[in-house]
Amino acid sequence: MNAEAIVQKISSDIKDKIQEVSLAAPLRINVKVDREKLLAVLQYLKEQFGFTHLATISGVDLGESFEVIYHLASHLATVNVRILTPRSAPTIPSTVSIIPGAILYERELQDMFGLVVQNIPNPRPLLLADDWPAGEYPLRKDWHFNRPAEKIPGGK
């Protein structure tokens, strides 16, 4: 089964669950879904085509909303399942029940973008320092790092 066939099958099988499906580049399939239907789509992809390997989850700050992209890979192709979540209520469902290996990526999203992952088994911070101020999310576009003035040892 090649990538075109997968696109065909997705668009005929779960038309009601997805917003859009396209073949962006060779072996790269884009699927756009509502965040409520994300789990159902992932489940479908896993059972139908064997997309079990979640390469990573990328978050992108689009200003009004956050885009969250689930990069699924198998030997057939790579599927990027993308959802949007508004900035005012940035919640996404946890995918750990379907893909157990997603846990670290979801915790990383929480740290970096301040997304709230619902039903995540372990919500503790993952990456940032222990003394990191609460409510600051470094990868948001409106967050800027003000570098403290550097000491120049022995210098002018």
Partner: peptide
């Protein structure tokens, strides 16, 4: 240099 989680050189913390 300028990354939010790094403090710059060692000389910012220790005398080098």
């Amino acid at each position: 240099r300028g990354a939010y989680n790094s403090m710059g050189g060692i000389d910012q913390v220790l005398p080098v």
